[in-house]
């Protein structure tokens, strides 16, 4: 099927003990899932999480720094925006492959690509967040004697948080989906079991890995929503209550 994938072991345990469900390749075999959770599914899931966390973390740091610059210097925003939009248009598989000659069949390649995709979303949202701070609040803060750093820390950041969290949510979900393509480059992440299962048309594995990928995204989103609610209690207040 694909020549790029690293060679891998057999999907179905080769003890000749595969259950009848698996041998008949019925729609979904819970026993296979149970048996292979430890050796196959869980590692893939954890690798996937690791890939995503690193990508979003690095992307956030870069986008945040860029937004801080763009906040003050108006010339910066447009070029950065254009650059990010450009990268965003590049098909993910192509980007991965184009990076391989440069950074090899490594996690670095994957991370460079994933981080590039998160930059656009995070930059826009962080900048929007900063811009949404009302002018009178900023004036009051300065007038009260807060230095630039204090204004940023005590006023701008908290008030920008809703928009920033929205960006982190979108970036995280998108990266979880994109990281499946990493399996074209390195044998890690949830994309790998999908590949192997595609080779064999193995229904159970196809279904469980697809479910895992989507479930991971929904769980991550849910956790981030909770985090946002915890961090921004004032946004849930109805005015005048």
């Amino acid at each position: 099927m694909t020549g790029i994938l690293a060679a891998s072991g057999p999907v179905i345990p080769d003890f000749g003990e595969a259950s009848s469900c698996v041998q008949d390749n019925r729609l979904f075999c819970p026993d296979w899932v149970r048996d292979n959770w430890g050796p196959v599914l869980q590692p893939a899931l954890l690798q996937h999480v690791k890939l995503v966390v690193i990508a979003v973390a690095i992307g956030f740091v870069l986008a945040f720094a860029a937004a801080l610059v763009a906040r003050r210097s108006t010339w910066f925003e447009r070029p950065f925006d254009l650059f990010s939009a450009l990268v965003y248009t590049i098909p993910s598989l192509a980007l991965f492959q184009l990076l391989v000659p440069i950074t090899g069949l490594t996690v670095t390649t994957v991370e460079v690509a994933l981080v590039s995709y998160t930059l656009l979303i995070l930059f826009r949202n962080i900048l929007t967040g900063f811009r949404s701070v009302p002018a009178d609040v900023l004036e009051a803060a300065r007038g009260m004697g807060m230095g630039s750093f204090q204004v940023l820390r005590r006023v701008e950041l908290p008030l920008a948080l809703p928009a920033i969290m929205a960006g982190v949510r979108v970036a995280t979900i998108s990266t979880i989906a994109l990281a499946t393509v990493a399996a074209f480059v390195i044998p890690e992440g949830l994309g790998r079991p999908i590949f192997l299962a595609l080779r064999q048309f193995f229904n159970t594995e196809l279904i469980i890995t697809a479910i895992l990928a989507v479930a991971l995204a929904l769980v991550a989103d849910g956790l981030l929503v909770l985090a946002q609610r915890a961090l921004t209690p004032w946004t849930r207040i109805k005015a005048g209550s």
């Binding site: 998108s174 979880i176 989906a177 393509v181 949830l190 999908i194 590949f195 595609l198 229904n203 697809a210």
Partner: peptide, 14 residues
């Protein structure tokens, strides 16, 4: 946003 291309194809192939 949460749908990886590979996952959708995977389910389709079933």
């Amino acid at each position: 946003r949460a749908l990886p291309t590979l996952a959708v194809i995977a389910v389709g192939i079933v």
